[in-house]
Design a protein around this nucleic acid. Structure first.
Lengths: 347, 347
DNA sequence: TGTCATTTTGAAAACGTTTTCAAAACTATT
DNA sequence: AATAGTTTTGAAAACGTTTTCAAAATGACA
């Protein structure tokens, strides 16, 4: 079928060992032989069989990427970052998505076993045991946005807690008190962190019991749409809504618009992630920008370095990447509140 | 290092040939040996080395995906479709993006050579010669949205021409005559098709010379933003704008909003692709919905079938997938036009 | 029990590389 | 010119499978 090293050797009039040496630049060979080997290889369009190479324990050149169900701009941005870094370090990307349960993860990892040199894993829904079983696969791993014990692997998380805290503080600073939160998937670590940030900010203002302000949700616009229905029925009605993420916020905006509730004047709305389209919603959305492309880039770069590092003696890094509050027109000061006014007039 | 077939053979007390036979279910082996082989394989957690397997000319299980640099939701939706189908057919996805020039493409294909069983290629900017060189790589290939001579490969294009035609006809039907078009990348086949559809619709209305209505652009919101600046300076001013795609339309909306031009009353705006966020723009965007996830799914399914098909005697399919005009609030009837009124009063 | 056909099995070749080892070809030194 | 040292080279082993081939074991039948 294909051109093999034997064909090159025959054409160049040398042994296959010599061809290998020239092509891998591993030992000195006489200049004239070297030339004819290169000439022969080019003429025949030879390229080494990757299977034969990796059979000898060489690198495959692949980086495996395991992601939860991919949707929306967030993942497009992430993938762009991953791919750019992979390109830069001479790797290719093997991608698998839609993993939630531990055994699905394990199956995917087994499928990638010995086909890749390392793994990028983003699995906010994975528990400690799941993480452990990934680590025990013997692969080099870089985690993104996943709950991993510090020191056990390279981790690049973004500051879900801090982002939610800052966002909630922003709304509190605008005078909002009844701030509804649409929560993400209950099993997801990043969602839990955002809830924690929200509660911390609320508690700072003396609002300890937020149970009636928290609504179940997902990272989808449908979930935002549905949750908004419940929020609008709450009494007294919240004056602000923090969505699980930007996609969810889009559903909130849509539901509010249908219900004839004006944003931001009747209700303020905020998202999370900072995807590009938040600039173009009606009104433009206040959100928390996550540098997800950059995170992807750095995760791959770091993984590539670790793969290169034969000795494996580089310490693991755990990093929480800062996020940035982006205030747009969807959040303004709360109206003088009828409930508060009532309280004031009776006082 | 890893567990090999020899370890399994030793534990089961048989030869490696027998292990291979049991695991691949290729020849009958005695039930008791079969049992102990399976037991041994499970106990040791054995899985065959993929490199050794593909070295013997077996399938790799990989499907390569070559895409231009794509951002945003379009990409995510495509990827979802690709991944779902890959999963369903037991393949994994090897992804490379950011290809424009023929030599970049060739480099990427060489990188995937013998690592994948087939290729999904979406390359609207590729010319016939580039397509030919991909085909000559000897891989099974499914093209998406690429200019390929019918019969030479499996192709799944969506109806760029028809979509642009319908969209332009829609605006003409609303009474618009000065319809500006922001064009996509000049080298891209899909962009050219959209221009062709636009021109065809305009010509039907007797508007043959559209040069002054066509503006250079890209598939990005920045390009839409910039082009809108030029469009607003045109005299007489267009009453409608067709953006290169939805991302581009988002930039148009943003620029018009900044300039204080009301949409849809002063200017109607339309996009192309039908990404989810077009539901949430201000106002919701009229667009052409492309079933890109489904196209991705089908491209992979078809490729998987072709890979399976040992004889290679299945005829290639060329299919143009229909698209759907989605009318939303960003396009309404043209106002009575001052230019037309002037012409009428002098007549 | 001996012969023949059939089923089951293992040894060995093959896939295409890289790498080890030892031989061969030089070069320098005496 | 012989020797020692160095550089360059090729043969062969190794990586982990699948598969071919022939041998061994089994079963059927006379």
């Amino acid at each position: 079928m294909g051109i093999t090293i034997h064909d090159v050797a025959r054409r160049a009039g040398v042994s296959i060992s010599t061809v290998s040496r020239v092509l891998n630049d591993t030992t000195a060979v006489h200049e004239d032989k070297r030339r004819s080997v290169i000439e022969a290889a080019e003429a025949l369009g030879y390229s080494p069989n990757p299977a034969a190479r990796s059979l000898l324990g060489k690198k495959t050149g692949g980086i495996g990427v395991l992601l939860p169900h991919v949707g929306g701009e967030f993942f497009a941005e992430l993938l762009n970052g991953l791919d750019e870094a992979a390109h830069a370090s001479g790797h290719f990307l093997v991608i698998s998505t839609s993993y939630r349960h531990r055994d699905e993860f394990n199956a995917a990892i087994r499928a990638m076993d010995r086909r890749v040199d390392g793994l990028i894993v983003m699995a906010p829904e994975l528990d400690a045991e799941g993480v452990a079983s990934i680590l025990s696969s013997g692969n080099a791993v870089s985690f993104i946005n996943t709950l991993v014990e510090e020191g056990s692997a390279d981790v690049l998380n973004f500051d879900n807690f801090g982002g939610a805290l800052a966002l909630t503080q922003h709304l509190l600073g605008l005078g909002h008190r009844r701030i509804a939160l649409i929560k993400g998937p209950s099993g997801a670590w990043d969602a839990q962190e955002r809830v924690r940030g929200y509660r911390a900010a609320m508690a700072e203002e003396g609002i300890e019991d937020t149970a009636s302000l928290e609504f179940e949700g997902e990272y989808t616009s449908i979930a935002g749409y549905d949750a908004t229905g419940a929020i609008l029925e709450a009494v007294p009605q919240p004056t602000a809504i923090i969505a699980a993420n930007d996609d969810c916020a889009a559903g909130v905006l849509s539901a509010l618009s249908e219900a004839g509730v004006s944003v931001p004047h009747a209700v303020a709305v905020a998202g999370f992630d900072g995807i590009p389209s938040t600039q173009y919603t009606l009104p433009p959305l206040t959100t928390v920008r996550v540098p997800i492309g950059e995170i992807g880039y750095r995760a791959v770069s770091r993984l590539a370095a670790r793969i290169e590092d034969q000795e494996g003696e580089v310490a693991t890094q755990y990093e929480t990447v800062p996020v940035e509050l982006v205030v747009r027109k969807s959040t303004v000061a709360a109206l003088p509140d009828s409930a508060d006014l009532g309280a004031a007039s009776t006082g």
